[in-house]
Every structure is written in C-alpha cells, then in structure tokens.
C-alpha cells in the first residue's frame, strides 16, 4: 500500500505535466506582423488607414503619440490593445512593429521603444474615455484631425 500511496500523486503530477505541455503547445506565439493581422487588422485595415468616420487611421498618430508619456499610455490602454489576448511582451513587440511599419513618411525613424515592463505598468488602468483622450492627444501633439 505504501508504494501505491506514492505512485498515485506521481501519476497526477505526470498528467499535470502533460497537460501543461499541451497548453504551451496550443498557445502558439506569432510574429508581430501576424499578431497585427489577428488582433488589429480586422478594423484598422491592412495598412492601418482604417475606415473614415468609423475607425480612425493610425498612420499619422502612432509615432507622435509614442513620443509623449500620455500618448504612450493611450496606445497601450486603448481597448483593442489592453484587452487583447497577447502577453505584455507580445503587445510591446506589436506596438513597436506597428510604429515602424504603419507610419506615414520615411522608414527607420528612431523612437522610444515599448518594453514589456512599461506595457504592464499602463495596461491595468482602464481607459474610460477613449475618443476624448484621443482628441486631447491630437491637440497636444499638434496633429491635424
């Protein structure tokens, strides 16, 4: 009996291990470009230009917003970003990829990159007034509406 008492928890541990491996297997990590397609493109369209009057274009706002603290918070806290199923590191990579690839003008412009820790610090705070916050940011950064 003593032998059996040991072997049953071992069996459960092994099963839990297999279950954990299976979970890791199913949670596939994608490249930022694929995450853009899966998480953002449905509404923001493939080039980020959105749909006039319904979905705002992100092509002229990503880079200026990333240069100011309130803008960086906004980019992480918009519902589509903060409530996505991505990890903080994946969301940081995705935002960096978007700033690099979906911004009007020349490529390769230097910007302050997002890190997982920075994303984590903003992400827990809900953004209640999305449209109003965006309007204020547009005014503050001097972007044409």
């Amino acid at each position: 009996m003593a032998k059996r008492r040991i072997s049953v928890p071992v069996l459960y541990a092994a099963l839990a291990g297999i279950g954990g491996l299976w979970l890791c297997e199913t949670a596939v990590a994608f490249e930022p470009s694929v995450n853009y397609m899966l998480q953002c493109m449905g509404c923001h369209t493939p080039d980020g230009s959105g749909a006039a009057g319904r979905v705002p274009s992100i092509r002229s706002t990503l880079l200026p917003f990333s240069a100011v603290a309130a803008g960086r918070q906004f980019l992480v806290q918009v519902p589509g970003a903060s409530q996505s199923t991505l990890s903080n590191a994946e969301l940081a990579d995705l935002l960096n990829w978007m700033i690099e690839n979906l911004t009007n003008g020349p490529r390769g412009v230097a910007f302050n990159r997002f890190t997982a820790a920075e994303v984590a610090s903003y992400r827990q705070k809900p953004l209640v007034e999305v449209r109003g916050t965006r309007e204020r940011l547009l005014d503050a950064t001097g972007i044409e509406k």
């Binding site: 899966l38 449905g42 979905v55």
Partner: peptide, 8 residues
C-alpha cells in the same frame, strides 16, 4: 465589408 474579424 472593410471591417471584419481575422483568425487562423
């Protein structure tokens, strides 16, 4: 529709 949902 331009707006949609995307999966794999």
């Amino acid at each position: 529709s331009a707006i949609t949902w995307v999966g794999t």
